[in-house]
Amino acid sequence: MTIEPYDSGDLPEHKPRRSDVDPKAAKRAERQVGFLFIASGLASAAFIVAYIVTPVDKEMPLPGFGSTNASNLLLGITMGLALFLIGAAAIHWAKKLMPDVEVVQERSPESSEAEHRDALLDEYRRGIDESGVKRRPFILGSMAAALGLAGLPAVVLLRDLGPLPADALTKTMWERGMHILIAETEQKIRPEDMQVGTLISAVPEGIDLVMEEAGNLNELAKSAVMLIRMDPAEIVADQTPEGKEPWSYEGILCFSKICTHVGCPLGLYEQLTHHMLCPCHQSTFDLADAGNVIFGPSSRSLPQLAITVDEDGYLIAREGFAEPVGPSFWERG
C-alpha cells in the first residue's frame, strides 16, 4: 500500500540559466572550468617541486602562529589545491553547462507480483523436495550437528591468545625488605631526603631487571607507587591493620600509583589537602585519610604499601601489597 495523501502539483517550470541563453556566458563558464583544471595541474606540478626542493626538517615562520614544518605546509597546500580545484571545476561544469532540467522517473514496484512470489515458492519447494531432507530427517539432523561442531575448533583455536590470569592480577613484585627507588633516578631514598609536602614517584628495586627479562613493561604497570611525606599530625588514618607495626614511617606514606577505577596512573596531587586526583576520570583519593575515595567514579581506596627503613636508613617495603592494585575485577574479592 502506498500513501498518496495529496496532489503535489506539477514540477515548477524550468528557469533557464544565463549560460543557457547567453552564448557569451556559456563561453565564460567554459573558460572558468578550463582554468580551474589548469590551476589544479599547476598545483600538482608545484607539489612535485616542493617535494624535491624542501628539506624534510626545514622550519618556516608562519606570521602570527610561530613556525611550522615547511615541507608539510607546502605539500599540504599544493596537494589540497590540486585536488580541490579538480572538484571545483567538475561541479562548476555540472552546474553551469550541463542540463539542469529535473528529470522524473517512476519508482519500481514496491514488491514482486504475487504470481512471481508464488512461482518462487514452488521452485523452492521443488528443491527441498528433491534434496529429500523431509523424508530423510537423519541427514538434516546430522548435518546441523556437524556444522555446529565445526564452529567449535575455531573458538578453541583462540585459547592460546593468552595465559590464564592466575595470580598476575593480585601479585606485584613488592616484597619484604625491597628498597624503594625514586622512579626517575633509580636511587634509594632516605626519609631525610624528603621534605614535608613532597611527592615522589617510586618503583621497587630491581624492576629494570624484571622488565628486561620479561621483555615488557607489565611490572611497571602495577608496581608503580608514590611516596608522600606529610606532617604526621595531619594524617587522619592509614591502612595499618590493628595490632600491626605502622605502615607509614615518620609521616611518609606509600600508595599504589595505579588508579583503582580503570587503571590510569595518578597524577594531580594537591599538597594542602593531600588529595590525589586521577587526571583521566577525576577519582579523588584522600592520602591523609587512608587513601579513601572522596569523589569520582572509583569505588576502592588506593592500596597502601607498608614501609619502614633498613639498617642503613633507606626506605624499604615492610611487606608486599596486602591487596591487589589497580582496577577491580570480578574475582578480586
Binding site: 608539510n72 599540504g76 589540497g80 590540486a82 580541490f84 571545483a88
Partner: peptide
C-alpha cells in the same frame, strides 16, 4: 569527492 579530499589535504597541511 575531490573537494572533500582537497579540504582534508589542506587541513593536513595547515
Amino acid at each position: 569527492f575531490f573537494v572533500v579530499f582537497g579540504v582534508t589535504a589542506l587541513m593536513g597541511g595547515l
